[in-house]
Design a protein around this nucleic acid. Sequence first.
RNA 1: GUGGUGGUAGCUCAAUUGGUAGAGUCCCAGAUUGUGAUUCUGGCUGUUGUGGGUUCGAGUCCCAUCCAUCACCCCA
Length: 420
Amino acid sequence: MTNPLRAVRGMNDLLPADAPLWQCFEGILRAWLKAYGYREMRTPILEHTGLFKRAIGEVTDIVEKEMYTFVDELNGESMTLRPEGTASCVRAVIEHNLLFDGGKRLWYAGPMFRHERPQKGRYRQFHQFGIEALGYAGPDLDIEHLLMTARLWKLLGLADCIHLELNSLGGAESRARHREKLIAYFQAHEALLDEDAKRRLHSNPLRILDTKNPAMRELVEAAPRLMDELDETALAHFDAVKAGLEAAGIAYTINPRLVRGLDYYNYTVFEWVTDRLGAQGTVCAGGRYDGLVQQLGGKAAPACGYAMGVERLLALMVEVGVAPPADVPDVYLVNVGEAASRFAQHAGETLRDAGFNVVLHGGGGSFKSQMKKADACGARYAMIIGDDEALAGEVTIKPLRGEGEQQRVALGAAAEFLKG
RNA sequence: GUGGUGGUAGCUCAAUUGGUAGAGUCCCAGAUUGUGAUUCUGGCUGUUGUGGGUUCGAGUCCCAUCCAUCACCCCA
């Protein structure tokens, strides 16, 4: 507490007590990804600043005020800690020409960095897990992504507290047209706008639709709707996605105000949301971004994907009482005396050869104190070795959970005894 | 980045109108000199987030700062 050396604000240590939850989550994730044929990709945490400016958009909040950008003093380059994963993923796909033989299903996971004010479910270093399917144009991949996320919520025990919100942004032309109409509309009613709305009128007029100011409700409800601007292709795509969801029995709500904070999205956008985490309730979000590959210099290729906030999902698991399996050894090796200590190392290796997880007591101490540790660690068995046993090449095995008397057996027979 | 609330032992929390900083838990030792979760006994633990100020005297009041938290904002 008095130590001036503290972790950087908004950046958290993962302590051993929390590790099992993360591992449990990651284990479920890996099996689930395999079931859908997605393959892992790892990219650097640091990228040239220009990548994010081009991918995410110069006027987004992320790029304007949340990026950890600094100059590498050794060569004068502007570097940025990645604020999200898609840009790096697409960059790597282009750089290594991964689409040369067709579409790719990819996933990544790791820390992301955004300089925001920390809050529950919002940290400056946080972890995202994400998926990108590149080179696929049809709505089939959009549907696959929605189905697979729905399956994941079931696997995590969260299906009852997350719901899906869906929208279509249409193509770039529809959006540009809508944006112009929106600005014109709000300008015509400028007297009715609050301060916030005036500020956003030209920077981000879509956000005005999201206002919580009741005085502006009427104005906003009568505003031009993006849905009315969608062309036939976009509508067909959207309809197909909705049909796919209905066929799979996945409930959703259309949210016409659902907008993304990153410029690269088009067509389908979605968010999985919970009301159990307060203000940071979006647990997974994504959609289609058909223009990004070309925008970053690659050969034009359609794409869609999504990202999940790991901390938020874990918080939700804790909230609903999902408990990871306890992380306990099979055997705790109690050893008192010099000969016993040497023999215990040998006994530990022998048991590990047989596939057991063994914790060797370290640091000496009485039998009593060592037995206390054995119990506290949750091991099923204590294996007790004194100089007696060491001399005889034997071990005393005491069951710590449930029934059973302790027994003294030859070390060679110990593994057999533990299995039986 | 803006506003509100809060910070006392490793953890969970007490402390009257400003008057010696406490309990449970954890940990250690003993009761049983080779045996754990119970019980009993004893022991350890703090610059009261940090730095200033007011006061004879500050955990308590004031200011600043850091951190957490809630909301805004934003997003995963």
